[in-house]
Design a protein around this nucleic acid. Structure first.
Length: 603
RNA sequence: GGGGACGUAGUUCAGUUGGUUAGAACGCUGCCCUGUCACGGCAGAGGCCGCGGGUUCGAGUCCCGUCGUCCCCGCCA
């Protein structure tokens, strides 16, 4: 292929086929960079040696597809191109065939600058000819293959599950597919194969995996597409640790395929720790944790601060540290608190920032010194303190606000880290910090619907020790103060550099417990039967304990490829408004099609 | 649903306080060139300034609306 000729091939005849990249016409001699997915080789048309072929070569233009036959020649030492792997040789062409011509493309695959994304997506086939995209798509293939090979070697079967199915228990909106044969009824595209993989456990395929497309009709982000690919797996009889081990194994294989060695086991922290130390359930471990500085202070000092700044002593006083941010101007120091943090976490602002560290150090030299040594602050670090504004609240509301407050601090930590990224240099793309976040809460409070909802999905097991709490509060689905919020699930996330790669849990395999969960969620027997009847019935026929996880393949490849968006690693992605600009989808359909489906549109 | 950025030649961009003929680079076309590799030189073509309205003697520039792309919040376990 075009990128593969080397010095050792010199003297051999070769046939190359590919696209015309750059063309350098010097009159009697024409150089063409011939390109395919393997790279480029310089081919030479020489009027003196072959006038007919040279004349034909004058017609060549960008992106023409050609075949050339010729002799591989060693280049003279002074004409070697060190920038390309095939640079020591070139092909002296004896025969040229123009296999196809090309219109002038809106942009060239070899262009130094990038066309805007709208153009790239419309002409995706041209965009995909670019070296980076070829690299990313190849990387994706290698990663997927490594994962398949690894899981196969561990005894997992890859088993397919339906795309046309019914609504699954995840919380996102479904994509619906109308049925012609059953007018008025709809399939749902799976948000994940959750129930099918659990059924497979019940069926005795005790190690399952699938690299599978999932569909969620929610708003897009740089790291969210409406259809995305999951590495979905499930196994029978596992402790969470066993699932983690499998994931660490296939991620090692995947990253190795991407040229990166990683070292399991990954760090593990609980959800509560993550919130306290990072204000985030998917912390980026390349940045330092926040430090609750209360432990460094005497009660008197704590009182002094609490009074002076009107902050809670019972809530953390978080020190946020941005390493090496160095000296910043007074204006900058004073305006730090106005960054995005306030829009991130809804609700009344109750974060009191001691935003001007210099001033703080001046006003409270003793306290400041204690705190700085306690949090191991270096001289050129930027730091600031944040406390929760003291407002009279009930104890329960205060509990809630620990999380709320820490999340707000966490956003501020990230905003600042982003702002000073150039200074601290912590966001190294090749610095891979994996992390397990464990013991997620079982339920979370839904403010809109004023009820507790499953934080993961309703088939997630809970910690055995928390069973009593469940039973004691089984009828409190509408009570925001209910201890339901304290129940921990056997649910875990795997996180890499601030991105959630995947999420999983040990499932409920006992019907009695499943019934309690539905009850706690305020779901009647009939309701549960209507939604998940087939599954509940299956649970009754000897269900083994089981659990699993699903990881986003696109996100893994994105991070490995150093890309900023999923669109760089998905061949045919959609825009932020879920449109495919190349094929122009979605589109209206004909009246006849709608009629056949028994669907009428509101005008 | 909300906030922000952007939209000018095929492409990437510049365009001052509103001022008469809208520029550059790359790409494209033609000619010249035997060692280029981001080849070079000369000449040339190429514009619904996203779209619609308004203000004004005059709008790429100001205002309103609209469409599109991107980022974020909400949302997405």
């Amino acid at each position: 292929m075009c990128g593969e000729l080397r010095l050792s091939d010199a003297g051999r005849k070769a046939v190359l086929m590919g696209w015309v990249g750059r063309r350098r016409d010097l009159g009697s001699i024409i150089f063409v960079d011939l390109r395919d997915r393997s790279g480029i080789t310089q081919v030479v048309f020489n009027r003196e040696k072959n006038p007919a072929v040279h004349q034909k070569a004058e017609q060549l233009r960008n992106e023409y597809v050609i075949a050339v036959i010729g002799t591989v020649k060693q280049r003279d030492p002074e004409t070697i191109n060190k920038n390309i792997p095939s640079g020591e040789v070139e092909l002296a062409v004896d025969e040229l065939r123009i296999l196809n011509v090309s219109k002038q493309p809106p942009f060239l695959p070899g262009d130094a600058g990038l066309a805007n994304e709208e153009t790239r997506l419309k002409y995706r086939y041209l965009d995909l000819r670019r070296e980076v995209m070829q690299f990313n798509i190849e990387m994706r293939h290698k990663v997927a293959k490594a994962i398949r090979d690894y899981l196969s070697s561990q005894g997992f079967f890859e088993i397919e599950t339906p795309f046309m199915t019914r609504s699954t228990p995840e919380g996102a909106r479904d994509y619906l597919v109308p049925s012609r044969v059953q007018p008025g009824s709809f399939y749902a595209l799976p948000q994940s194969p959750q129930l099918f993989k659990q059924i497979l456990m019940i069926s005795g395929f005790d190690k399952y995996f699938q690299i599978v497309r999932c569909f969620r009709d929610e708003d897009l982000r740089a790291d969210r597409q409406p259809e995305f690919t999951q590495i979905d797996l499930e196994m029978s009889y596992p402790q969470p640790e066993r699932v983690w081990e499998v994931v660490e194994g296939f991620l090692s294989a995947a990253f190795k395929a991407g040229g990166v060695e990683i070292n399991p086991p990954f760090l593990r922290i609980t959800y509560d720790q993550a919130i306290l130390q990072y204000g985030n359930d998917k912390p980026d471990m390349r940045l330092p944790a926040m430090v609750d500085v209360r432990a460094a202070l005497t009660p008197e000092e704590l009182n002094e601060l609490a009074t002076k700044f009107r902050i809670h002593k019972e809530l953390p006083i978080q020190l946020i540290r941005i390493p090496k941010a160095g000296d910043i101007s007074g204006t900058e120091r004073r305006t730090i608190g106005t960054y995005g943090a306030y829009q991130h976490v809804q609700g009344p602002s109750f974060v009191q920032l001691m935003t001007d560290p210099k001033r703080f150090a001046k006003d409270y030299p003793a306290i400041s010194e204690k705190i700085l040594s306690f949090a191991k602050i270096e001289p050129d670090d930027l730091w600031l303190l944040a406390g929760a504004i003291d407002k009279p609240e009930s104890q329960a509301a205060r509990e809630q606000s620990v999380q709320h407050f820490c999340e707000k601090c966490g956003f501020l930590r990230l905003d600042l880290a982003q702002k000073y990224a150039a200074k601290h240099g912590a966001f190294q793309k090749r610095d891979f910090r994996f992390l397990w976040v464990t013991d997620f809460p079982m339920f979370e409070w839904d403010k809109t619907e004023k009820r507790w909802n499953p934080a993961h999905h309703p088939f997630t097991s809970l910690h055995e020790e928390d069973m009593a709490k469940l039973e004691a509060n089984i009828d409190s689905v509408n009570d925001p103060q209910s201890p339901l919020g304290e129940i921990r699930a056997l649910a875990y996330d795997v996180v890499l550099n601030g991105t959630e790669l995947g999420s999983g849990s040990i499932r409920i395999h006992r019907q009695d417990i499943q019934r309690k969960i539905f009850q706690a969620l305020g779901m009647s027997e009939e309701e549960a039967r209507a939604r998940f009847g087939f599954f509940l019935e299956a649970l009754e026929y000897g269900t083994p304990p089981h659990g699993g996880i699903a990881l986003g393949l696109d996100r893994i490849v994105m991070i490995l490829a150093g890309a900023e968006s999923l669109r760089e690693v998905i061949p045919f992605p959609k825009t932020a408004r879920a449109v495919d600009l190349m094929v122009d989808a979605p589109t209206p359909v004909s009246a006849a099609q709608l009629k056949e489906l028994g669907i009428q549109l509101k005008s």
